[in-house]
Simulated scan of single mutants.
Amino acid sequence: MSTPKLTAESANKVRGLLAGIPQQASGDRRRTISVRSSAVTIDCPAWCTDPHAETYRSLEDVSHRGDQIFMTVPTYNGPTEKALIAYISQWPFAGDRATAVPHMVVETVNDGDCVELNDSEGIALSDQMVTHAAAFRSMALTVSNAQPKPQPAEGCRVARCDGYFHGEDTCSHVLGKLPMGEGAIDVELVSEQGGPVQAAVFSMDVPCDDNLLKTSDPAELTALAAKFRAFADTIDRAAVELGGQA
């Protein structure tokens, strides 16, 4: 009996069927774990940072867990507390369709009570957080603008001047710094040689031909953007104080 030949049309059909078979996700690793002292090999997703070092009682107890993120908030009694704690989780063998796939686990406050969110629910919550953060920032700026404007001390032209440059007939007050590697970017109010009070954003430590950041890591860019947003608040405060000294 002769072997049938694979025509081009048949080959294309086979390729199409193979393409439809789920493949191991890119970046997944094969990990050997211990279940009741027996070695079992499982797929471990790239985002999982759990070392899986324990001995599991059953395969249903095996879960994947990513790094935890959170923000810190002040409390009435003084020390800060974690809030909006979140991480990625997956229980591939527990038999629950909702948790068998990657999902988010969120604790509103650090009390152990959590909610599990799928991708669309997580995105919806993050959109609410962005809106809330913008309203929160606007409220903080309203409070800042409502504060009594600081007045320069006698003999000074800039409020809260430390007098360090009085010998050069200059008054100045640094409102904030943005650390950048070995140096920093400063924002200050200054009056030089009896001139008008001005706001200055400058750096004497970061060379002009150096990159403020050069990276292939998106997380580092996100962290830098957050620093710049916080520094923008300081520049806004400089505008408020400069207006109050006009």
Rank of each mutant, 00 (worst) to 15 (best):
I42F: 06
D43K: 06
P45G: 01
C48D: 12
C48F: 06
T49N: 04
E54W: 04
E54D: 14
Y56S: 03
Y56A: 04
Y56K: 03
R57M: 07
L59A: 12
D61W: 14
V62H: 08
R65N: 03
G66Y: 01
Q68V: 13
I69H: 10
M71A: 01
V73R: 05
V73M: 02
P74F: 06
P74G: 09
Y76P: 08
G78I: 08
P79E: 11
P79F: 04
T80S: 14
T80V: 13
T80E: 15
E81D: 04
L84K: 01
I85C: 00
A86P: 03
Y87D: 11
S89W: 02
Q90H: 09
Q90P: 07
W91L: 01
P92T: 12
A94P: 13
G95S: 14
R97F: 00
A100V: 05
A100H: 02
P102E: 08
H103R: 04
M104Y: 08
E107G: 00
T108Y: 10
V109C: 14
V109L: 15
D111T: 08
G112Y: 11
D113K: 03
C114Q: 15
L117P: 11
L117F: 12
E121T: 07
D127S: 11
D127I: 09
Q128L: 05
V130R: 08
T131V: 09
A134S: 08
F136C: 00
A140L: 07
A140T: 05
V143Y: 06
P150I: 02
P152D: 05
E154D: 05
C156E: 00
R160T: 00
R160V: 00
D162M: 00
D162G: 01
G163Q: 05
G163W: 03
Y164G: 01
F165H: 12
H166S: 02
T170A: 11
T170W: 10
C171Y: 09
H173I: 03
